[in-house]
């Protein structure tokens, strides 16, 4: 096939380039700028090289925060993906139940992040919260404010409540696109319920599931607002995720160089992880072609 090359086309891309430069590249470069310099005020900067990066990578605080992030992402991915698939499989395919389910599913997604945090903060309070009070009445010493395990459970519950719907909706979209003939053929072939899931439904959901996992991974790895509102990173530092730590570092301690270096490392990790996920999942099942 002969491709026509027209270099004038590059001019068409210019407006987008300019926009992206102002909205992303230039701000990012300021961060890069901070990460390699040091200042003692008065807008006087000194070249610091890779010092900030070394400091970040050597600090236990950074690795602890990252560990919490990874653990959090892993837990919520496991729960949300399996629960999402399960709910999608059991949602009605036709009739009046469809719009009802879809609207119910979409509701949590429409609530602003800080409101979600506030809802759960109130919900979990042992004096007035529905959950906290109920558990207390049942004799369970639940307190997310001073018990790290309870804080984690609450944050995970909150995230599952907030985001499982996304996985459900994506999976549901994949499921309804399967023609009836597949289920009929499976019946003829005597396939078990598991075989239908494994060989018909899962392969058809594969692409949307990839998108769901990517989105949920990136989102959960960047989580900030909800734990910030719910626990503020506590008790202690037990729910201090990287984003919360970053804000503490940059705004709380005004440690711009270190915060900038951390931002870049953080960004690169997300980029790398997303790339790995994407490559693995797009190649899955096609290597034997």
């Amino acid at each position: 096939m002969n491709k026509t090359w027209n270099n004038k086309a590059w001019f068409m891309v210019l407006p987008v380039l300019a926009l992206v430069a102002f909205s992303a590249v230039i701000p990012l470069m300021t961060v890069v700028n901070y990460s390699v310099q040091d200042t003692f005020g008065n807008n006087v900067f000194f070249w610091a090289g890779t010092e900030w990066f070394q400091e970040i990578l050597d600090s236990d605080r950074f690795w602890a925060a990252m560990g919490r992030n990874l653990a959090f992402s892993a837990i919520i991915l496991c729960i949300e993906v399996s629960l999402g698939i399960f709910i999608a499989l059991n949602m009605p395919r036709k009739g009046w139940g469809v719009p009802v389910c879809l609207v119910l599913m979409a509701l949590p997604l429409l609530i602003p992040f800080n409101v979600v945090g506030t809802i759960w903060q109130v919900f979990g309070r042992i004096d007035i919260g529905l959950l906290g009070r109920t558990l207390a009445e049942l004799g369970i010493a639940y307190n997310y404010v001073n018990n790290p395990v309870h804080a984690w459970v609450t944050i995970i519950l909150m995230d599952v409540w907030h985001w499982t719907s996304l996985v459900v909706l994506l999976c549901y979209a994949g499921l309804v696109s399967i023609p009836d003939a597949y289920y009929q053929a499976a019946k003829i072939d005597g396939a078990s319920r598991w075989a239908v899931f494994r060989y018909i439904q899962l392969p058809k959901m594969h692409r949307v599931l990839l998108i769901a996992i990517l989105l949920r991974f990136m989102d959960s790895f960047m989580i900030y607002t909800e734990p910030f509102v719910l626990t503020g990173g506590g008790p202690g530092n037990t729910t201090t995720f990287m984003s919360i730590d970053l804000v503490k570092l940059a705004i709380g301690e005004f440690n711009l160089g270190e915060a900038a270096a951390m931002s870049i490392v953080y960004f690169l990790i997300i980029l790398l992880m997303s790339w790995v996920f994407y490559t693995v999942m797009t190649n899955y099942g096609t290597e034997k072609r």
Binding site: P179, A181, Y182, Q184, Y199, P203
Partner: peptide, 9 residues
């Protein structure tokens, strides 16, 4: 059936 049904994977 009229249209092909295969188990893709």
């Amino acid at each position: 059936f009229q249209f092909p049904v295969v188990y893709d994977t």
